[in-house]
Design a protein around this nucleic acid. Structure first.
Length: 119
DNA sequence: GCCCTGACTGCTA
DNA sequence: TTAGCAGCCAGGG
């Protein structure tokens, strides 16, 4: 039984190492749908309480290297604060340096393997 | 099963 | 990099 799209998104996001960031499109690509970036954002948007604690959603930003959240409970401020706490720095304009903090990503097969191993 | 929405992306100017 | 525009995917009503 394969996990549904949302679960896959969470699994992939959970593989992002501390201090690194990935873009929505990158996550979507790992899942096999490079064009489903919006759906990835939608999946993270659907994160609730407990799951929000397990999934490092703050490490997912847009392709411009910037946070693009506009919600009250999970605000851009919170995301930025969490990332800075992990050592990720923002420039004066609020952008992240992809060269320094960009995540190389994984193959879905690898993520799937981790899922299978109970990770 | 159709229609709308959305934490996006790539292309063009 | 920024602004504007259209395309893509999956879930919810």
């Amino acid at each position: 039984m394969e996990p549904n799209f949302f679960e896959r998104v969470y699994l992939a996001v959970r593989q992002i190492p501390r201090g690194k960031v990935a873009s929505y499109g990158q996550i979507a690509a790992i899942l096999g749908h490079p064009q489903a970036a919006r759906t990835v954002g939608w999946a993270l948007n659907a994160l609730s309480g407990a799951q929000a604690e397990e999934v490092p959603w703050q490490r997912v930003i847009n392709s411009a290297g910037r946070i693009s959240i506009s919600r009250a409970d999970l605000s851009a401020d919170i995301q930025r604060a969490r990332l800075e706490a992990e050592g990720v720095e923002f420039d004066a304009r609020g952008y992240i340096d992809w060269k320094r903090y960009g995540w190389a990503g994984l193959e879905w097969a690898e993520v799937e393997a981790l899922w299978g191993s109970g990770a």
